[in-house]
Design a protein around this nucleic acid. Sequence first.
DNA 1: CAGTGTGAAGCGCTTCACAGCT
DNA 2: AGCTGTGAAGCGCTTCACACTG
Lengths: 211, 211
Amino acid sequence: MAHKIPHVPEATVARLTTYLRCLEQLEAQGVKTVCSRTIARLAGTNDAQFRKDLSYFGGIGTRGRGYSVERLQEHLRHILNLHRPRHLILIGVGNLGQALLGFPGFHRSPFHIVAAFDNDAKKVGTTVHGVRVRHIRSLARFVRSHPVHIAILAVPAAVAQSIADLVVRAGIPAILNFAPIHLQLPPEILVRQVDLTRELEVLSYVLGAER
Amino acid sequence: MAHKIPHVPEATVARLTTYLRCLEQLEAQGVKTVCSRTIARLAGTNDAQFRKDLSYFGGIGTRGRGYSVERLQEHLRHILNLHRPRHLILIGVGNLGQALLGFPGFHRSPFHIVAAFDNDAKKVGTTVHGVRVRHIRSLARFVRSHPVHIAILAVPAAVAQSIADLVVRAGIPAILNFAPIHLQLPPEILVRQVDLTRELEVLSYVLGAER
DNA sequence: CAGTGTGAAGCGCTTCACAGCT
DNA sequence: AGCTGTGAAGCGCTTCACACTG
């Protein structure tokens, strides 16, 4: 290993993914080289922030020139472990769950949704966007024979905690939770929260009473 | 006005919405009074943080006792301007857009989705989850006769910027963007980003190369 | 005495500014 | 000269600790 990686702020990791989106866009436009100012503007930040974000992982640019779009992309993919295939399952095949099964980002390499689960007998056995729906009872058994990295929770808030407990007992290390509640979980489990209600309420606050 | 409100960190506003979810849960369980430690644990933070978050807006608790679940809820709703009705529109009636039209949180008071827009002639004129789909061409005209507070963008990344420009020209002050790109917008426009790809990639980073 | 409200200290992310390559 | 990489300064959020109150 060329570089010992120090603690990296979570905000930095989030920005790295944004830089990757910008680079994909630039590459599609045929751009070969880019400087920190350009990419930072595209990503909605400033050049110092961009360079500091990269500096945690060691130099990759060329002084006086900038960054190779191709090399920097590869570098970021490597940092984010995007070379490693990840198996996902989705739990809760309602409105939102069905849409997520069709969401291209969840099928794009290295992410693969390998199964969906629901407790509704009418849905079990069907196939939604190419993904087989199984009964939630069969979750633990399924995970025993198919390693799963991330569980996507698209279930109602009222049952989210008990489903999350099930997921943890099955040995899945990470959860992407769409239910609008904070899950109580052991500290070694990774959780990311996507809360649409929260986003609306934050906008409501910032809009204020007048607008 | 009883209290001059200083600058409030965005992280605080986000937590206020979480506290509100916890209070709704507690009220459903018949709890009348709660102390900062209890609610903070439910929300995934600590008691000092909770009290500091509230302190920006002036005292509401009772020393030695805690907080009235009902009063605190009302207080938070007031702070977040949730007494004020908000009209939303959704742009992009694809997979995700259709699911969002059915998402209960987007219909729950004070939020109302009043119209949806798409450029696909096959979708225009249909009704999805009770919401009429109109042609994107008619956006500006619609907004002129129906004030809109928030536009939800559920369009492909490639067209998100041009649709956002359209939204801004129509005079809509806030955007909830689901496309995985950073929008370039005038500073007075409020934006919240919901980026599912980002969430997966952050999990991929934290999972590391081993797990 | 239990629990709130808050100034002040602590700490971590962001920004600055410049040395060092090309 | 142009632009990167980075120690150090700046700044804002979080945590502490305690005066205060019911």
